[in-house]
């Protein structure tokens, strides 16, 4: 039993990513998309928080939203996997439910 969570807000804008990570269960997947991709970057004030709180979940980032924002792939934090929409669909299908943190 697992959940796919999606987050589409920058962690610098509000607490959505923090709240999501605070409720996700071990083994769940969290996909950062739209402005949520800023939460996947390394070397910023939120990186350690995201890495710490996200230690028990699988973190993903939507690649097309990363490139759209001019974020170099090398700036995506280690351990965060980039996926495309087909893989997003596959993740939604293979989990038990999807919870979109709006």
């Amino acid at each position: 039993m697992s959940t796919l969570h999606t987050v589409n807000k920058s962690p610098f804008q509000n607490q959505t990513l923090i709240s999501c990570l605070g409720h996700a269960k071990a083994g769940d997947s969290v996909l950062l998309m739209e402005d949520g991709v800023y939460g996947a970057m390394s070397g910023n004030a939120m990186s350690e928080v995201v890495a710490g709180m996200g230690a028990n979940v699988k973190l993903f980032v939507l690649g097309s939203d990363v490139t759209a924002r001019g974020i170099d792939a090398g700036r995506v934090a280690e351990g965060i996997t980039s996926v495309n929409y087909e893989e997003f669909v596959g993740m939604a299908a293979s989990c038990d439910r999807v919870q979109n943190w709006l």
């Binding site: 589409n8 402005d35 929409y85 087909e86 669909v89 596959g90 299908a93 709006l102």
Partner: peptide, 25 residues
């Protein structure tokens, strides 16, 4: 649940739906 152009939501939904259909869902 968001309007076009103001928010990316309808674009993301469109991309998801296209990908779902393309992968046999």
């Amino acid at each position: 649940s968001e309007g076009p152009y103001t928010h990316q939501a309808s674009d993301s939904a469109y991309n998801f739906v296209k990908a779902a259909l393309a992968t046999g869902h």
